[in-house]
Write a protein that binds this DNA or RNA. Structure first.
Lengths: 332, 332
DNA sequence: TTGTAAGCGTTATCAT
DNA sequence: ATGATAACGCTTACAA
């Protein structure tokens, strides 16, 4: 433990070759005769030589890693997103840095700091100011994740408009009136777009746009809280459109816990289609979003897509309404 | 975008000082006269100079970042753990690498690879083989997270024995017989210890050790699955001790969905005390584990604790049973 | 207090 | 095919 590691020079001396040859062998690049390769490989193996990442980074001017910045790690959405990103990067031999900004005072400074440790940064929507975003992009290749492109900074996101279709379904197909929206439009670009689509669907159906949204977070516990706010009142909504599945699940637990019938007395819908959505009773009507693919696409773009001629500037991944029973549809 | 960054030498030339002075100023180290500092700072600021992490790393022989390796990111446990780790590291100005091993063929190779990119690695229990663990520890300071110390590799973990107290409570205080355990003891050191404590409590109470555990994962969906396996049978258990809260929550949803009374017909307990545990109805009896602190302690140990004389080798954090209603206790 | 110069470990260019 | 050697950008003795 702690035997200081050997350097190229030492390996070269032991194998009686030049450092260049050792480098060529260890990187598998360039032309090396079989016997040379053999000789060097033997020494490398015997001494357990592993090239220093620091030396390599400096010489190649590449860190060999990328970063993902997001507000917090709670819930299956971020888990999947990060895992999709990580899997893609690691598969390409690239390391993954993370930075969680949530509730941290000097997060902008931290982001800038991290920007100087990596070859590319994926910033989740609404984690940093626009100004900081620009500064990051000026230092290192950057991609906006789950947000709009900005000044030449490309974006990868999902099509949030499908929640409008879902709203139309509740309004028109089921004929519900008195819908509520759970989620804070100021919290993230995704929720902003979902709230807008929710309102647009009302206008399209010529139904008065409902009360303002229940501004809470996106965790399951927030859904439980929202249930308290909405269902204990004198005039509970006929249907609740939640900004994501987690809050919908919390809402469902809250409704069921109050002895309310779902969807009989109150219909509930979500967004994401997380695994639990099809496991609860009644199963959750939602919008399927390819979360993992969102992360993977972002990583790919960062690693090998940027700077190419005709590189994608705005990747909008498709989503799809999934009608199950929590909206009132019969079990198929 | 992409203006190649200035180097110390260029800043030095512009400010008409030596590179040493620039370095001293930018690092805030050494003695520099006020007017010099002022002059250099002005130039640094004007040109937006930020020292290259690569150069710095090589010169100081420090990457300036640590890594955390874990099997997967699903559920609040890992979210909290990673966030606790991350927050502590970032607060110390250290970057955080992550590596998810779950379902990846060559994860051991990836771990070794990552080991050469960081100054320290925290490996979550049972993500890599003992052999790989040793190789990592030979290359870089290492800490086992949620597992036992190994050959001089220190560990940070929680006291799992409290689940034995909980089992005793069910067996003795409530007088339940026919308990089931949900969780795969081969899945992780934590679950192994919890299963052992569960069995030991039975022996201590002179009650026959129950059937073998329901070997499933630790996600909420696994709890729903476990409910199907346990509650639809002809002889459902009187109480179910789940290896963590997520599965307990899934079990609760499954039980309630079947119209069973909890705890009337089946009592349920968990482990972790995640936020949802006190929000569901009935509230979940569980064991509180300081997850975030586990991550933070690990990070601290990695960053500044190792190598010190008398450094801690096995940090076992305390846990505490939390008796709520899902075990049959009255609401207090 | 400030400057000079020698590393840090690798890669890559250019001879040979 | 192989070998010298110059970068890469920074820190840090050591000198002045």
């Amino acid at each position: 433990m702690g035997n200081k590691r050997l350097t190229v020079r030492e390996i070269a001396r032991i194998a009686e070759v030049s450092v260049a040859t050792v480098s060529r062998v260890s990187r598998g690049t360039g032309q090396v005769s079989p016997e040379m390769r053999e000789r060097v490989l033997r020494v490398i193996d015997e001494y357990g030589y592993r090239p220093s990442q620091m030396g390599r980074a400096l010489a190649q001017q590449k860190h060999g890693s990328v970063a993902i910045v997001f507000p917090g790690l709670a819930g299956p959405y971020f888990s999947e997103l990060v895992q999709g990103f990580e899997a893609e990067a690691v598969a390409a031999g690239i390391g993954v840095h993370i930075l969680v900004t949530h509730h941290r005072a000097d997060s902008d400074g931290n982001v800038l700091d991290m920007a100087s440790r990596v070859d590319g940064v994926a910033v989740h929507g609404d984690t940093v100011s626009t100004e900081t975003m620009r500064r990051i992009a000026a230092e290192v290749p950057t991609v906006v994740l789950a947000g709009r492109p900005l000044d030449g900074v490309p974006a990868v996101r999902a099509d949030n408009s499908a929640i409008g279709e879902l709203t139309r379904h509740l309004l028109v197909d089921h004929g519900y009136r008195g819908l509520a929206f759970v989620g804070n439009p100021d919290g993230s670009p995704d929720v902003t777009e979902r709230w807008e689509a929710f309102k647009a669907a009302h206008k399209a159906a010529r139904v008065a746009v409902p009360r303002s949204p229940i501004r809470l977070g996106l965790q399951q516990s927030d859904g439980v809280l929202a249930a308290g706010e909405l269902l204990d009142g004198r005039k509970p909504p006929r249907a609740v459109v939640c900004a994501n599945d987690e809050t919908a699940l919390g809402m469902l637990i809250g409704a069921l816990g109050r002895g309310l019938s779902v969807p009989g007395e109150v219909a509930i819908t979500g967004f994401d289609d997380v695994p639990m959505a099809s496991l609860v009773q009644p199963r959750l009507t939602t919008v399927r979003q390819p979360i993992r693919e969102l992360g993977a696409t972002t990583a790919r773009l960062l690693i090998s897509g940027l700077g190419n001629p005709g590189a994608v500037m705005d990747a909008v991944l498709t989503t799809e309404p999934v009608l199950r029973e929590s909206c009132g549809c019969p079990r198929t």
